[in-house]
Computed example of a mutant assay.
Amino acid sequence: MSASGTTIGSSGTTVSQTLLDTMNGTSSASGSSSSSGTTSASDLQNTFLTLLVTQLKNQDPTNPADSSQMTSQLAQINTVQGISNLNTSLSSLATQLAAGQTSQAALLIGSNVLAAGSNVTVSSGAASAFGVKLDNAVSDLQVLVKNSAGQIVNTLDLGAQSAGVVPVSGWTPTDSSGKTPADGTYTITAQGTINGQQATATTLAASQVQSVVQMTDGTPGLKLANGKTVALTGVASVL
């Protein structure tokens, strides 16, 4: 074998060392390593096929060359190419899904939605909607309403509830004595009970969707009137 190539068969056909290095997964020089690093799977596949045909045409019938390693590596190249094509298809599908989600999100502009939050607004004897998200069914659910000083204004007993979102709308705000509390922003906390044990309960606040924005991960998000931005998947309910 010379520095520039290898002779196959009795006819003297020469195959370049670069092709052999590509087949064997080795590198004879930094230049060939750099070249193979930028070679596509399709180019490698064509190179292997050319080398295989040349080898078969020029091999000694009494001492045939071992092509098992070559064909094995060719199969690996086909696998890599297939994965590359699959990744391209999945990327295209993801782009289409993101575009569809953005269109769906745009339909929510102007709507009131429930998302993670703990504020309830009282104005002129009416309260904004709110809700609670439960990971499990509870035997009793209570919502505590507190003023800006952290004092409990009222406790709402919602009784037994199933797992999921429990919306609360149309509540007439009153304090523990039955009087209408002053206008302002109040804080809610939720307490769920399962057989006497405390259960996970997440409070939800209502707000109007003002616009659709792109989140850092590329997915659509909703800009709410309360100043928060939530992912489309963060909307628990549309009111």
Rank of each mutant, 00 (worst) to 15 (best):
T47K: 14
Q198I: 09
A236D: 07
Q161R: 15
N58K: 05
Q198A: 14
A206D: 05
T172C: 00
Q191E: 14
S33W: 09
G227M: 01
A236Q: 14
Q45T: 05
A236C: 01
V235C: 01
P61T: 11
G31A: 14
I194H: 06
L44E: 12
L51C: 03
D157V: 06
L52Q: 07
V235S: 02
G221N: 03
T13Q: 11
L19H: 13
V113F: 02
G159L: 03
Q104T: 11
V165W: 06
T18Q: 14
S89D: 10
S10I: 04
L224M: 13
T50A: 11
N195M: 05
L20T: 04
V138D: 07
N58A: 02
S67L: 13
N195F: 08
D60V: 05
V145R: 07
D140M: 11
S111N: 09
G125H: 09
T47F: 12
S67M: 12
V235K: 01
T18H: 13
Q142K: 15
Q208A: 13
Q104M: 12
A3P: 00
S33K: 14
G159A: 05
S207I: 00
V80F: 15
A127K: 05
V113I: 15
D43T: 12
A41I: 00
L141H: 12
Y186N: 09
S139V: 04
T62K: 15
G159N: 07
Q151E: 10
G150R: 10
G117K: 07
Q142S: 08
P167G: 06
V168T: 04
D66P: 00
T180D: 06
L108W: 08
A149R: 07
A149G: 01
